[in-house]
Lab assay of single mutants.
Amino acid sequence: MKVIFLKDVKGKGKKGEIKNVPDGYARNFLFKKGLAIEATPANLKELE
Results as ranks from 00 to 15, higher is better:
Met1His: 05
Met1Glu: 02
Met1Arg: 08
Lys2Asp: 10
Lys2Gln: 12
Lys2Asn: 12
Lys2Trp: 15
Lys2Tyr: 15
Lys2Leu: 15
Val3Arg: 00
Val3Asn: 00
Ile4Leu: 11
Ile4Asn: 00
Ile4Ser: 01
Ile4His: 02
Phe5Ser: 00
Phe5Glu: 00
Phe5Tyr: 08
Phe5Pro: 00
Leu6Asp: 00
Leu6Ile: 12
Leu6Glu: 01
Lys7Asn: 07
Asp8Val: 04
Asp8Thr: 13
Asp8Ala: 08
Val9Ser: 02
Val9Lys: 01
Lys10Asp: 10
Lys10Thr: 10
Lys10Met: 14
Lys10Arg: 14
Gly11Phe: 08
Lys12Ile: 15
Lys12Trp: 15
Lys12Gly: 13
Lys12Gln: 15
Gly13Asp: 02
Gly13His: 11
Gly13Leu: 02
Gly13Asn: 03
Gly13Lys: 01
Gly13Glu: 02
Gly13Phe: 14
Lys14Ala: 09
Lys14Asn: 10
Lys14Val: 11
Lys15Gln: 10
Lys15Ala: 13
Lys15Ile: 09
Lys15Asp: 02
Lys15Ser: 09
Lys15Val: 09
Gly16Ile: 01
Gly16Pro: 00
Glu17Trp: 04
Glu17Ala: 05
Ile18Val: 13
Ile18Ser: 03
Ile18Leu: 07
Lys19Ser: 07
Lys19Ala: 10
Asn20Gly: 07
Asn20Asp: 13
Asn20Trp: 15
Val21Tyr: 07
Val21Leu: 05
Pro22Lys: 08
Pro22His: 09
Pro22Phe: 07
Asp23Ser: 15
Asp23Tyr: 15
Asp23Leu: 15
Gly24Lys: 12
Gly24Pro: 10
Gly24Glu: 14
Gly24Phe: 13
Tyr25Arg: 06
Tyr25Ser: 03
Ala26Asp: 04
Ala26His: 04
Ala26Thr: 07
Ala26Ile: 07
Arg27Ser: 05
Arg27Gln: 09
Arg27Glu: 07
Arg27Trp: 11
Arg27Ile: 14
Asn28Gln: 10
Asn28Asp: 13
Phe29Thr: 07
Phe29Val: 13
Phe29Ser: 04
Phe29Glu: 07
Leu30Met: 03
Leu30Gln: 00
Leu30Asp: 01
Leu30Tyr: 03
Leu30Thr: 00
Leu30Gly: 00
Leu30Trp: 02
Leu30His: 00
Phe31Gln: 02
Phe31Tyr: 05
Lys32Thr: 10
Lys33Tyr: 15
Lys33Phe: 15
Lys33Arg: 14
Lys33Gly: 07
Gly34His: 09
Gly34Tyr: 08
Gly34Arg: 11
Leu35Ile: 06
Leu35Ser: 02
Leu35Gln: 03
Leu35Gly: 01
Leu35Glu: 02
Ala36Val: 05
Ile37Ala: 07
Ile37Trp: 05
Ile37Val: 13
Glu38Met: 11
Glu38Val: 07
Ala39Val: 06
Ala39Arg: 02
Thr40Tyr: 06
Pro41His: 11
Pro41Asp: 13
Pro41Met: 12
Pro41Asn: 09
Asn43Met: 11
Asn43Pro: 04
Asn43Gln: 08
Leu44Ala: 06
Leu44Trp: 07
Leu44Ile: 12
Lys45Ser: 11
Leu47Lys: 08
Leu47His: 12
Leu47Pro: 06
Leu47Asn: 08
Glu48Met: 14
Glu48Ala: 14
Glu48Leu: 15
